[in-house]
Nucleic acid binder design. Sequence first.
DNA 1: GCAGTATGTTTCCTTTGACAACATTGTTTC
DNA 2: GAAACAATGTTGTCAAAGGAAACATACTGC
Lengths: 200, 200
Amino acid sequence: MKASPRPYHHGNLREALLEAAARALETGGVGSLTLRELSRELGVSHTSPRRHFADKQALLDALAVRGFERLDAVMARAAKDRGEDFNARLTRLARAYVGFALKHPAWFGLMFEAKHRADAPPVLLDASDGAFAHPPAVFAQGQAAGEVVVGDPARLSLGAMAAVHGLLSISTNGQFKGIPLDRLVAEIIERLVWGLRPRE
Amino acid sequence: MKASPRPYHHGNLREALLEAAARALETGGVGSLTLRELSRELGVSHTSPRRHFADKQALLDALAVRGFERLDAVMARAAKDRGEDFNARLTRLARAYVGFALKHPAWFGLMFEAKHRADAPPVLLDASDGAFAHPPAVFAQGQAAGEVVVGDPARLSLGAMAAVHGLLSISTNGQFKGIPLDRLVAEIIERLVWGLRPRE
DNA sequence: GCAGTATGTTTCCTTTGACAACATTGTTTC
DNA sequence: GAAACAATGTTGTCAAAGGAAACATACTGC
């Protein structure tokens, strides 16, 4: 009678796979992520992931959803009203976004790659929408305070978030031509905020 | 004596591989690109690509360089001075950028993915820098004409290009929430240009 | 306690990238 | 102009990966 060297059922393989996948992603990028390696890591046969994910892409999609959920949480915290002016609040939001991207570059890349696939599952798009729902809220409040020009907040915030996201894509290694992203973000946001001021 | 059913040497395999790879990229995305399939297509043994590219990544990098060169050409044409004002010129440049990205989505994606790899070859970074050298030139001219606030043109143009690029990343299928990118680009550029006006 | 289902395993197949040893063609040098 | 040599392509082989089918074990509801 052995002390259960390894139970037949893992218990929570789906979760464990996602966690291990996230770890692998951070360590060696998406290229180093193989179902077989994950299985080995979890001490499970190499076909067991198939019980939880139809194929590798399904796992990656699930991971992308998780990513957007985490990003959503980060954004929600950063978007909280603390009595600052619009510029400060938007800058904090942008910095949170950039911070997440720089902390989890491979994951961040995966999220948008997954989202751009023609057959991206609806849950993924929903998760993405969720994370991107915070900037418009900040803009709406800015409008209410008379700090921002009138117009659809979603449309206005799109430009700002696009600039921040694009900065990430164009930059390399957290900087652009030697200037750290953090500084560039603040600069760009300030210029944007200036352009968004109501023209009396 | 046979009419050379197939010559032993291909003659220009390196070029042919890059062209076939570009075609495969457009058809089925980067996932459908395999060295063996390329070889089959060109009627060549499955190991011959190794004579020209150390490994698959080297071929992808070369393809990315080609992409930046084409983007450079597109940008150069769009950045040409035609006597318009700054807003019109910047809008044309931005539209050219977006046009390229939407026309070759997989290629475009590959270009930036390759560029973001930690061990990206210098040629790649140079090619990228080349394509991104046009916006600063347009900004500099805008400054000379008194249409743009003073400051480092490279730094100022970065914000604009970041916004355009980010718009591409955030959008899906050439639109965002049903609004076509072309319209959003014009909108965002106009707002940016407004914010960039010299404050007298 | 028993039937049915969920979950994990074994075994096998095909494709892929990479490597080594070899064959053919093109080029340079004397 | 022929012999060495370099460049280019081929054959054969391997290990690793994703995926599929058939089977084994554990859990659940009745």
